[in-house]
Write a protein that binds this DNA or RNA. Structure first.
Lengths: 199, 199
DNA sequence: TGCAAAGTGAACCGGCAAGTCCAGACTTCG
DNA sequence: CGAAGTCTGGACTTGCCGGTTCACTTTGCA
């Protein structure tokens, strides 16, 4: 997206923000372009002006935006999950980030579920975010095995997968119950599981 | 649904089965009544004849049907999760059930995600199934604490919540990766977590 | 200052999918 | 048999929503 004036950039930004708000509350199918128009003092033509690919492109932009938010919230822990202290810090950061957002569609992966059957390309994109997230967890665990914080027979990739699944499930249940507790229980359970692989 | 002749019951059944097939593959939004019609040698009027509430009622019926399938697949373990042996048996039964269904929308809870914003009543219903499932896990853990298989300070309800979240997350990731491994990793992680509460 | 490019508003289109209607065919049972 | 109730087909209606068009204004730069 090049050649945007200040005014244009502002409008585009307004659209993304409003659309994000809507999509978090109502899901992809529940978000209509007309609602975005109403909520942003814009018009359809502008939507397609800034997102020529239509709804798909807009949703992709939102997913990217949300992903960066979530990843940022996990800083600085997410990059250095190579000590027990870091994992605990990470857990707290995740809880903090999602506290107060319990009623929303927070989970990137949950989007896949809705989007995959009708828009495979978009799904691929979202899955890529998830994979990067998962990879960060795995990297930390690999380092921990290397530094003998995990027993040698521990399988970092599989453990990371378990933690990630647990995290996503925690988010899912959190949303349906509108309560942070399921996420907290899931993460605490994951940490307990990991610690049982300490030498 | 009373006053159904044999023929009527058969038709109704045909509709539910075909609709289940479709919804598992494409999600709620991706399933259209016309497709059901095409796939079942029926017509719209019959859909509304057997499900006067329209799509919502049909989806509710499917959810109930799916739920009973999933619960049945966990027999006999799910009713007696009060020993480590039972948990292992349960884990195997779950994996077996979902193996070969990896490309589908298996998770009941995942449906909530799609349906909740637009149909709260239906969502409530689906959540009820999930709660019953969760309760069964909790019951087993309570018994295990009572019989000293878990340390007294273990919180069965919270542990059950963690296991359940992990399970749901495993299903979610399983779908997006089209691979059973995430589910297996999630369940194995959960069992490891539980076992660390053994005395 | 003027013109090309960017930005904007609103009416419009087309398709899709949920839900309706009704006429007629079967089933059941007195 | 025949009437009440059940089942069926398919054409029809309705409204929503993603996407298009086009005339117009604003902006920024040579």
């Amino acid at each position: 997206m090049t050649g945007l004036t200040a005014k244009g950039a502002a409008t585009r930004d307004r659209i993304v923000r409003a659309a994000t708000e809507l999509i978090l509350e109502r899901g992809v199918a529940g978000m209509t372009l007309d609602e975005i128009r109403d909520g942003t003092k814009t018009s359809k033509s502008q939507l397609f002006h800034y997102f020529p690919g239509g709804k798909s492109e807009l949703v992709a932009a939102i997913a990217g935006y949300q992903n960066s938010q979530v990843m940022a919230a996990q800083e600085p822990w997410i990059d250095r999950l190579d000590s027990w202290r870091a994992w605990q810090g990470w857990r707290d950061a995740v809880i903090t980030h999602y506290t107060g957002l319990t009623h929303k569609y927070c989970s990137v992966s949950a989007l896949v579920n809705e989007v995959a059957p009708t828009d495979p390309e978009l799904a691929t994109q979202v899955i890529a975010y998830a994979d990067r997230w998962l990879a960060q967890l795995a990297t930390g665990l690999h380092r921990m095995r290397d530094t003998k914080l995990l027993r040698p027979e521990a399988d970092p990739d599989r453990l990371a997968l378990a933690v990630f699944a647990s995290l996503q499930g925690g988010l899912l249940v959190m949303q349906s119950k509108n309560d942070i507790e399921p996420l907290a229980a899931a993460l605490d359970g994951s940490l307990t599981m990991l610690r049982s692989y300490a030498p």
